[in-house]
Structures are given as C-alpha cells and as structure tokens.
Design a protein around this nucleic acid. Structure first.
Lengths: 332, 332
DNA sequence: CTGTTAGCGCATTCAA
DNA sequence: TTGAATGCGCTAACAG
C-alpha cells in the first residue's frame, strides 16, 4: 500500500484508531488530564510508525504564526554575517524555527512575481548592523537589533566594542606606545561610531598620548590608502589601530610599501578576528568578536519577545587576542 | 474603522464589489478572457488601496507548494558559501521564492521542539559541495547539486575547475617552471578530487615536469605544514599550486619561515579568489570562481526542475587572475 | 463573464 | 475521556 504523499494527522488518527482531534491534542502536548495514557502511547506509536510530520502551512494558517524569522544583513558574503546566521540558525532549529536570510538592500528591487518579498509569512526579524529606521516597512513585526545602536527602542544585542578598544589601548600603552593612528571605517554604522569614540576616549585618558585618524571604505585598498596617509604624517604613529581585520591587511601593505617592518617599526591591531587575522604575516593582534554568539543571543531574545516577554538588551564581551603584530614601541 | 489585522482577499472583494474568487483569479493573473477589464482594474485598485498581500500559509496549504527552497551548505561562515547564498537568493526573490539556509551537518541534532527540522515545507533543495548521498532522507524532493560530482543523477552546476588548473599550469609553465608542488586539500569532495586530477594530468603533459603532493586540512596552519613538507624535499618545487586561497596563505608562511621570497624564489597560486587573495602580500595569482553565479545558476536550474523541466547540468568557467605571487622560475 | 462551493491539514471549540 | 464540527485564507472546479 504505497503511501504516495506525506501522512496527515488523519492518517495517524486512523492508524491509532482515534479521532484526528485527539491526535492533534496529543502531539500538541496539551493532553494532560484530557486523554488517557494508553491513547497517548498509541498515538505516539502510530505517528512514529508513519513517520508523521505536521504540515507547516496548515499549522501556520491555523495558528497565524509561521515559525520563521527573517535575518536582515547587509550581505552574507562577509564571513562575519555568515557566522551570525549560523549561530541564529542553531538556536532557531532547536525551537522549530527556520531562518530566512535577507541580504539587504542588495536583494531589494521589484520582483517579477507579485508574491515577492519575504516580508510576509514571518514572525519576527533579526536585523544586523543596520539603522533601526531601515526596518520601517516592517512596522508591527517584533524585531531584535544586532550590533546596532543599543539606545534604540527595540531590544538589542551588541558587542562590547568599547571594552575591546580600551583593551587594545591598554595593551599598546603597556608596550610604550603614545602616538596612535586610527584607520577608521567610513561606514555609517553604530558599531564603528562606538569604536571611534571609545578609542578617542581611551587615548585621551593616557597622559601625553595623541591620536590621528583617517577614514576609508572597508576594503584592503582603501585601508591601505588611509593607513598610508597616517604613516606619511610628520609625527608618524607608532601604532595603527584598525576598525576591522580587513583594514589591518591594508595597513600591513602600507607599512611594507614604506619599508616598515611589523612589529619592529610599527604595531598594528585589528578588530573581529576573522580568518584573515591568522592568515596575515605576522599574525594579527585583534579583538575577537563572537559573531556566532551574537546570532544565537539575538535569536534567543527574539524567541523571548515572540512569547510576550521583554528581553533585556545584552552586550557580548570581545576578547583581546595578542599575536605577533604588536610589539614594544621602537626606540627613536 | 481600524483594520486590526492584514486584509484578506475577501476584504479586497468587498472593497471592489466582487466575489472573493474573482479577486483570486485576477491577482493570480489567470483572468484572460474570463474577467472584464473593468473588473480587473477595480480589483487591482482595491488591492492596492488596502495594501493587500496574499497569505503565504493559505497559498501553500492550497497549492501544496511553499515557494521555499532549502540551501544545504557545510557552513555559511566561509565567504564562499555566503556568496552562493546571495546569488541564489537574488534569483529566488525575483520569482517569489524564499531561501532558508541549512548549515549541515552542524545544525543537525535533536531538537527541543517536535516541529524541528526545516525539511518540511520546502519545494526543493540546493545542495552545495556535498556528496549526493548526503541528501538521502530528502528522497523525493527535487534537488540540484552545486560544485559536486556532475556524474550524479541530479542536475548539477559546477565550476570548470579542470580548465582552471590547466590555466594555472600553462601560466606557470610559460614562466619556466617545471617542478611543481601541490598543496592539496584533504577534504573528500568532488571539487578537490577534480582539482588534483586536473593538475596531475596537466603536469604530466609537460615534458620534463614533475609534481609532488602533500595533503592537509583546509586551514592556514595545516597548509603551512603541508607546504613546508614540500619545500623541505631535496628537489624543491619552484611553484606551489594550492587547492584554495586559504592554503596559499599557509604556503606564504612556510616560504617566509624558510627565507624564501615570493615570487623571486617561489611562485604560489591559489584557487577561489576570495577576499584573502588581495589581502596577502604579494597579492595572489589565483583562479576566480564565481560563487554568486553558482548560486544563481543553481537556483535557475532548480526553478526549471520545479516546473517540470529537465535542466541540463552546467559548468561555470573559472578565470585565471594573474597577480604578484607568480614569477619567472629562479635561476639555479 | 462572475459567483458558489469545496476542500488543503491543522488546532480548537463544543457535545457526547 | 473522546469525537464531530468549524474555520484559518486561498485556489480551482463547476454552475449560472
């Protein structure tokens, strides 16, 4: 008797010799004191035997929820956001939720189909590294912001970038550095503003320390230029603090182009600790940002929000990882 | 009159003064010669006014299809797979499909919820860089394999890795190289087997050329070891062909550790052309693999498959990108 | 040309 | 303790 299509709860009911509604009760876990243990066992048995899986569409229709959340990120091509997704997906799967990633605004644009955007059929949104107002148009949908301005109305999970920057400055100061250069990202995101502010504050707290800053796009070539401008200043910095590991790669290049050896002549730090950090030579001193945990914590908060709770905003600590790119300040 | 919840097709019908089924016909685009143009306009108008969006769950339930495909990848943390996702999502969005990424087997494992895996509620599968038999358990679901053994039963989109390897060997041979070392990935995937075979064949076709091979995991440290073993051989290779850009980073380190300068003393090539390639110093000569196009082409094929077609397997050409890591063979 | 009707599979009343 | 009946919003036969 070939079962051509997936078994339904009615099939399970027939197999167990009970009614469909009983199956629903049992499998929904709401049978306490309403269905006899024997029946419960029979139902579970039948479901198992048939390999029954509830139909999500029907469930959604009935319940009005889809058990799907939208993960809005600038792109997945950057390993950072991939890790965020993986972390969120791990938590989501444990709760029967699926995650639809939405590279935004890249994917945007008119669709050929009238049933286009995934902005239907979702229960909530996880938005990473975006301004909160980018989420208008999704008004009314529960949202958790990741690595975004924690002063926003929505619950937020961020990295403790300020602590990270302070740790870098402490580390560098301990090595004797006083002239700092900031290779800064020109991207208009909270996380970079926070890094810049924290660095400026930390340096200002060190007697006799100075800070110069150059901005550039978040890619190797632009960072090389920005770092080069810093290194060509009359008062050359002895330490370059970069907003991101990728920018550190550019700083390396600028240094080499000027015959400066790292870390003998110049110390360089990064931020993120992605793959790149250990691929560079020398390996990069950087602040590890647990991207996977960010996604996981964000998903956890969103689940709480969906259940009517009020998740507190959280901050995940970064960790300074000291490698070979930082050393004692060169003797003049 | 506050519209508390989303408008349904019945609301649109009422607003337009027609029946609900007419709305369905019109919005479904199947009204040619069945509904008067005036009515059509009225319906569109009403839908627009109300901001109507069809309920996906109801659609799915009725149609039996979900307009969702599962993208199964080893991880999204590698930029390569992120790009595949972005490419697939772009095409999918244009056709009203959503993509849920499934990092596998990482996500696997028992779920707390009985409604766990996303292996329900999907129309098809895009599986990247996995063995075909990993997709058992999804039997009966249309599947397109990406960057996987094209001799499989399922339609496949692969990279022309063989051509890429040949291009590398031609390039290197033209520079005078004859002693090749292969820094090979020990990962058991079609794409790496193909690379190894193509390299061996290409070298064998060059009179007087030799090839040594060392395997390692796909990370910087392992690649450094493997490359080191190659460089420590009595007959040291003058060119190291790496299975992946990441492994090239390891090769760079092995070379530097031995005082070898790239490309003066040693030429190195990669494969993929991810971010890393231009972050290294000198920049890496490598074969660019269009990961985004792979995802897009795969999604296109899957769409065709879902419509009952028989998409042909395709091969996407890689492109040799010559940068600074390769140079003339050193004079002995 | 348009409306009526019948489910898709499920969770949930309400009766028995 | 269980079953029968209902409807979530939609599409597609089938009537009219």
């Amino acid at each position: 008797m070939p079962m051509t299509s997936r078994p339904t709860s009615r099939d399970v009911a027939r197999e167990a010799g009970v009614s469909q509604s009983t199956v629903s009760l049992v499998l929904g876990g709401k049978w306490s004191g309403r269905v006899s243990p024997a029946t419960v066992a029979a139902v579970h048995d039948a479901a198992e035997r048939l390999g029954y899986r509830p139909n999500r569409a029907a469930r959604s229709l009935r319940l009005g929820s889809t058990r799907t959340v939208l993960l809005v990120v600038p792109t997945l091509t950057a390993p950072f956001f991939g890790a965020v997704h993986d972390g969120a997906a791990r938590v989501a799967a444990r709760h029967g939720f699926g995650i639809v990633a939405y590279p935004w605004p890249e994917t945007a644009g008119p669709a050929d189909s009238p049933f286009a955007a995934p902005d239907e059929a979702i229960d909530g949104i996880l938005a990473s590294s975006l301004a909160e107002d980018a989420m208008s148009g999704f008004a009314g949908t529960p949202v958790v912001m990741l690595d975004s301005d924690p002063s926003a109305a929505a619950p937020t999970v961020v990295f403790g970038v300020e602590d990270g920057m302070r740790a870098i400055v402490t580390h560098l100061t301990g090595l004797g550095h006083r002239r700092f250069g900031h290779v800064a990202s020109s991207i208009d995101q909270w996380t970079f503003h926070a890094r810049g502010r924290a660095l400026a504050d930390a340096v200002a707290a060190v007697p006799g320390a100075s800070l110069a800053r150059e901005d550039g796009a978040l890619d190797v070539a632009a960072a090389k230029d920005a770092a080069g401008r810093l290194l060509d200043r009359p008062e050359r910095p002895t330490a370059l603090v970069c907003d991101d590991d990728v920018m550190s790669a550019g700083a390396y290049k600028a240094a080499r182009a000027r015959g400066l050896e790292i870390p003998r002549d110049l110390s360089v730090t990064g931020f993120d600790d992605v793959l790149l950090a250990t691929a560079l030579e020398p390996e990069l001193t950087t602040v590890r940002l647990p991207a996977g945990e960010l996604g996981a914590a964000g998903m956890t908060a969103l689940l709480e929000l969906l259940e009517g709770g009020h998740p507190a905003s959280r901050s995940l600590p970064g960790e300074l990882v000291v490698r070979g790119s930082t050393g004692p300040v060169p003797v003049e």
